Every structure is written in structure tokens, then in C-alpha cells.
Measured scan of single mutants.
Amino acid sequence: RSRTNFTLEQLNELERLFDETHYPDAFMREELSQRLGLSEARVQVWFQNRRAKCRK
């Protein structure tokens, strides 16, 4: 699998939701992934990586 390149719109939406909650539930992830045209797994990994970045 190659690296996912997020569009600016996708990143803005992901960051907006991250500001609301660092741990979106499965329903939120599924709804977001459909809206952004990403797989739920990519959304989940993005949040994992974003939380790690936040801890640094």
C-alpha cells in the first residue's frame, strides 16, 4: 500500500474533528470516512498518528 496523500479539505475536516475529540467512536469514524472518501482504517490511523504528534 502506498502512502495516502490527504487533500487540504480532508486535513481541515480531520483537524476540526480532532479539536472536538481525540478519540472518535466507530460511528464518527465511519461517517467521516464516507464523507471524505477515505477508508475507515485510514481515518483511524490518522487519529492515532495525530494523537502521537500531540504527545510530543
Results as ranks from 00 to 15, higher is better:
residue 52 A to H: 05
residue 47 F to E: 02
residue 29 R to M: 11
residue 12 N to A: 12
residue 42 R to V: 14
residue 52 A to R: 06
residue 17 L to K: 14
residue 19 D to T: 14
residue 40 E to F: 03
residue 18 F to S: 02
residue 53 K to V: 12
residue 22 H to D: 10
residue 54 C to N: 14
residue 24 P to K: 01
residue 50 R to C: 02
residue 53 K to W: 09
residue 33 S to L: 05
residue 31 E to K: 11
residue 32 L to H: 00
residue 19 D to E: 14
residue 33 S to E: 04
residue 53 K to Y: 05
residue 42 R to H: 15
residue 12 N to K: 13
residue 42 R to P: 00
residue 10 Q to R: 03
residue 21 T to I: 07
residue 35 R to M: 04
residue 11 L to M: 08
residue 29 R to A: 09
residue 30 E to D: 08
residue 36 L to V: 13
residue 20 E to I: 10
residue 51 R to E: 03
residue 37 G to Q: 08
residue 13 E to N: 04
residue 48 Q to H: 15
residue 3 R to L: 13
residue 36 L to M: 10
residue 2 S to F: 08
residue 40 E to P: 10
residue 32 L to Q: 02
residue 39 S to F: 01
residue 56 K to A: 08
residue 54 C to S: 13
residue 22 H to F: 03
residue 44 Q to L: 12
residue 5 N to R: 08
residue 36 L to A: 05
residue 51 R to G: 02
residue 36 L to K: 03
residue 26 A to R: 14
residue 37 G to C: 09
residue 47 F to C: 02
residue 12 N to F: 04
residue 49 N to H: 06
residue 46 W to D: 07
residue 41 A to Y: 01
residue 44 Q to D: 11
residue 6 F to S: 02
residue 24 P to W: 01
residue 43 V to D: 00
residue 40 E to K: 03
residue 27 F to H: 12
residue 48 Q to K: 15
residue 9 E to T: 04
residue 42 R to K: 09
residue 53 K to D: 11
residue 16 R to S: 13
residue 56 K to Q: 12
residue 39 S to I: 03
residue 19 D to Q: 14
residue 19 D to K: 10
residue 31 E to F: 00
residue 21 T to D: 12
residue 31 E to L: 06
residue 1 R to T: 04
residue 18 F to M: 05
residue 28 M to D: 05
residue 50 R to K: 07
residue 39 S to A: 10
residue 11 L to H: 15
residue 28 M to V: 11
residue 1 R to K: 13
residue 19 D to G: 14
residue 28 M to Q: 13
residue 13 E to M: 07
residue 35 R to C: 04
residue 23 Y to K: 08
residue 42 R to M: 14
residue 2 S to K: 09
residue 18 F to L: 00
residue 25 D to E: 06
residue 7 T to W: 03
residue 41 A to R: 13
residue 20 E to L: 12
residue 29 R to K: 09
residue 48 Q to M: 08
residue 48 Q to V: 13
residue 15 E to N: 12
residue 54 C to A: 12
residue 29 R to D: 06
residue 48 Q to F: 06
residue 22 H to R: 09
residue 36 L to S: 07
residue 37 G to K: 10
residue 20 E to A: 12
residue 28 M to T: 12
residue 41 A to V: 13
residue 3 R to W: 06
residue 16 R to H: 11
residue 10 Q to S: 04
residue 2 S to I: 10
residue 34 Q to V: 12
residue 14 L to Y: 00
residue 50 R to L: 01
residue 45 V to R: 09
residue 20 E to M: 06
residue 15 E to A: 01
residue 24 P to Y: 01
residue 47 F to Q: 02
residue 18 F to R: 01
residue 37 G to P: 00
residue 3 R to Y: 15
residue 6 F to N: 04
residue 46 W to I: 02
residue 37 G to T: 03
residue 48 Q to R: 14
residue 16 R to A: 12
residue 25 D to R: 03
residue 28 M to N: 03
residue 25 D to P: 08
residue 25 D to G: 05
residue 55 R to N: 02
residue 30 E to T: 13
residue 52 A to Y: 06
residue 28 M to C: 09
residue 35 R to E: 05
residue 37 G to F: 04
residue 49 N to I: 03
residue 50 R to E: 10
residue 15 E to V: 00
residue 24 P to Q: 01
residue 9 E to K: 07
residue 21 T to M: 07
residue 33 S to N: 04
